[in-house]
Design a protein around this nucleic acid. Structure first.
Length: 131
DNA sequence: GATATGACTTCAT
DNA sequence: TATGAAGCCATAT
């Protein structure tokens, strides 16, 4: 496994409850904004699937497109299942079926700074208190 | 062991 | 503002 994937998993695990993060967001947090493509691929080979009961593992369902759309066909049980999980965690959805990135996009620093949209370009990923 | 493809994003024209 | 092309690592064949 490359060190890249390891950072991706670690970053995704830090995504707070009820928040989502885009592939580019994760890639940028680990210092590789050009590798957003591999972030998604890393999710494809996730060694630790998300456990909704224990709330442990890699919450791939919290990783969405920059538009707020979900990964169709490659989700756990389909985009519908993924959408249901996010909604169950408190993530708000638009009428278009996309995640409300404006309110639920994780800024990579604090769960309360999702509003405003700015300050999402952190070169480093500081330790975030998991939920 | 080598080649091809893939859950994307960003810059440039 | 919209469309096109480039970039990069890991996995699978």
């Amino acid at each position: 496994m490359g060190e890249f994937n390891d950072k991706v998993y670690e970053t995704v695990r830090r995504v707070p409850h009820g928040k989502v993060v885009s592939y580019g967001q994760v890639a940028r947090l680990i210092g590789q904004p050009r590798k957003a493509r591999f972030v998604g691929y890393a999710m494809h080979g996730n060694p630790d699937p998300w456990d909704c009961a224990a709330q442990t593992g890699i919450p791939c369902h919290r990783v969405v497109f920059k538009d707020g759309s979900l990964a169709p066909g490659f989700a756990f049980g389909g985009p519908d299942e993924q959408r249901a999980r996010l909604a169950a965690e408190g993530v708000t959805f638009l009428d278009d079926g996309r995640v409300d990135m404006r309110a639920c996009q994780w800024n990579g620093r604090d769960a309360g700074g999702a509003d405003g949209g700015a300050a999402a370009d952190g070169p480093t990923a500081p330790p975030i208190d998991f939920d």
